[in-house]
Design a protein around this nucleic acid. Structure first.
Length: 521
RNA sequence: UCCCCGAUAGCUCAAUUGGUAGAGCGGGCGGCUGUUAACCGCCAGGUCGUAGGUUCGAGCCCUACUCGGGGAGCCA
């Protein structure tokens, strides 16, 4: 829409001494108190009562209340401004002053404004919306506060990741996204037609990174990852972002140390740069503040012992008891509200509040019912856990719920893990690998290992898996020419953001999510 | 791949046992000098997901389909 469309609404900024104004952004208003400043943004919401109107402006850096008083601006300006719908775009100028009642702590006493694009009927209102509606309107939903807060935190997480590796002597190596099929896990790869030949979208850069580590010593790659698994859960995307460091001359203890410093550093940066966003999202800041090395370290065997122990039986029973008590409490709350509604005599605003409350309570109740339903199955799965199986999602959840900081689980059975992981020197049945389970039941955010650096052992493992050695010729070469102990890990960005923000669904942690059954826009 | 739930106004949801489809928000108009998801009054807004069936009568019951949500499994 060009300016022609809105020409009726435009009044010239140049007529109003705009040349003396400072162009600024909402996050810098504290530097402009007492001065006239100009902001460019969108109407987040607005109200007016008689001779005073309030526009809460959104400019991408924050929210600011703009006060328009009749008499202090021209009457026709006032009339035009109070008619602006949500998400109308405008340039607005006024005197900056501190005001605790404004969202960001500062407000603008408006002296002039230029309407860029007036808007009516913006689909996303300040009220409740369902997931389907918001995902179909994801192009607009990104402007709302919650996606904005999560997007800002995601940005910090990614910046912290890059900074951590760049400051610690790592070289960035971009690994390919088109990859040839190489035995492993083909059913989970997306196939593409590459000039008539099948190629696959990358699900890890690791094998390529190992080559690069032998050149640069410490390397990392950071890019999109594609998994064609038919997993329809809140923890899965088909396209997600993963960062993978790989280090020459490192052992398992070194990797764990690297990983815990890395994750702690990310959390610290978010706490420093995005405290307001964390608060707005209702994240568990107290728990995040405890995230610091050392993390807990368990071997797989110890984890298996915990899962089959009396402790887990009691823990699961305790959880079930808690869930049931919470359920009873919520049911009572719902009953009370319904009784009050039936009794009548409520003001409209009280009814509104109750309606909203009931929606929340019923959602919470549904969540609890699922937990109550799943608890016995998960308890049974844990109790029947046999050494040799991979840890299931519910097993990881149980272990992580028992700890207030992230937990490393190391030394998984060799048979349950990938061929390239190094067999443990002391125990031939396990590999030198680790998963990092985020606290509070968020599950795995990192998986990594020391790599098999011995030529013959790697060749044997490739044979055991039924792969063809010729498919791995270049990978085997790394073990022929100056092989060294080395290893690395991969961290899922969206899972990390979900864990830090307390967001229960991973799809909210990427701008345009791709899931098995749904690709938003 | 399997299981459960849902689809009613632009949005979020009601509608008793099968008996004339309702509220809030959003939109429009009017009122209010500091509001914070403001408030008060009025107005407009519907082929109840689609197709069949049962019935005097279906938003409600039955069958199939479509779309969405949640869970299991599998995985990171």
């Amino acid at each position: 829409m060009g300016l022609e469309f809105v020409s009726d609404f435009v009044f010239r900024i140049s007529d109003l001494n705009f040349q003396v104004l400072m162009k600024t952004t909402i996050n810098k208003l504290s530097e402009c108190v007492g001065q006239e400043a100009e902001l460019s943004g969108w109407v987040y919401h607005s109200r007016h009562s008689g001779k005073v109107a309030f526009i809460v402006l959104r400019d991408g850096t924050g929210l600011c209340q703009c006060v328009i008083e009749k008499g202090k601006v021209a009457d026709d300006v006032f009339e035009q401004l109070i008619r602006l719908g949500q998400e109308s775009s405008l340039v607005i100028a006024g005197v900056v002053r501190a005001e605790p009642r404004s969202p960001g702590g500062y407000e603008l006493a408006v002296t002039a404004a230029q309407i860029i694009c007036p808007t009516q009927d913006y689909p996303i209102t300040p009220k409740e919306h369902g997931t389907e509606f918001l995902m179909k309107n994801r192009h607009l939903h990104l402007r709302s506060q919650r996606p904005w807060c999560i997007g800002r935190i995601r940005h910090t997480v990614i910046d912290a990741i890059r900074r951590f590796f760049n400051d610690n002597g790592f070289t960035l190596v971009d690994t390919p996204i088109f990859t040839a099929a190489a035995g492993e896990g083909e059913q989970t790869l997306f196939e593409v037609d590459y000039f008539g030949k099948p190629m696959f979208l990358s699900q890890t850069g690791q094998l390529y990174l190992e080559c690069a580590a032998m050149s640069f010593g410490k390397v990392y790659c950071f890019g999109p990852t594609f998994r064609a698994e038919k997993s329809k859960t809140r923890r899965h995307l088909t396209e997600f972002w993963m960062v993978e460091p790989e280090v020459a001359y490192i052992d398992l203890a070194g990797l764990l140390e690297l990983a815990e410093n890395f994750v702690s550093g990310i959390v610290r940066r978010v706490l420093k740069d995005n405290r307001a966003e964390l608060e707005a999202l209702g994240a568990d800041i107290a728990t995040l503040e405890k995230i610091a090395p050392p993390f807990y370290r368990l071997t797989y065997t110890e984890a298996a012992q915990i899962l089959t122990s009396e402790r887990t039986v009691k823990f699961m029973a305790g959880q079930l008891e808690t869930f049931k008590m919470q359920k009873t409490a919520i049911e009572k709350q719902i009953g009370d509200i319904e009784a009050a509604e039936k009794a009548g005599g409520l003001k409209q605003w009280q009814k509104d509040k109750n309606t909203k409350l009931l929606i929340d309570l019923r959602a919470e109740l549904a969540e609890l019912e699922i937990k109550i339903e799943n608890n016995p199955r998960h308890a049974q799965l844990a109790a029947e856990f046999k050494w040799g199986k991979d840890l299931g999602g519910s097993d990881e959840t149980i272990i992580s719920l028992m700890h207030d900081k992230p937990v490393f689980v190391t030394h998984y059975p060799r048979a349950a893990k990938a061929f390239y992981m190094k067999t443990d020197r002391g125990n031939r049945k396990v590999v030198e690998n680790f998963d990092l389970l985020a606290s509070q039941g968020f599950g795995e955010i990192i998986g990594g290992s020391v790599r098999e650096d011995d030529y013959q052992s790697l060749l044997d493992r490739i044979g055991e898996e039924g792969y063809k050695p010729e498919d791995y010729a270049w990978y085997l070469d790394l073990r022929k020419y100056g092989s060294v102990p080395h290893g690395g890990f991969g961290l899922g960005v969206e899972r990390t953001v979900a864990w830090i923000t307390g967001e229960r669904h991973i799809r909210q942690c990427i701008a345009f999510p791709r899931m098995m059954d749904n690709v938003c826009i």
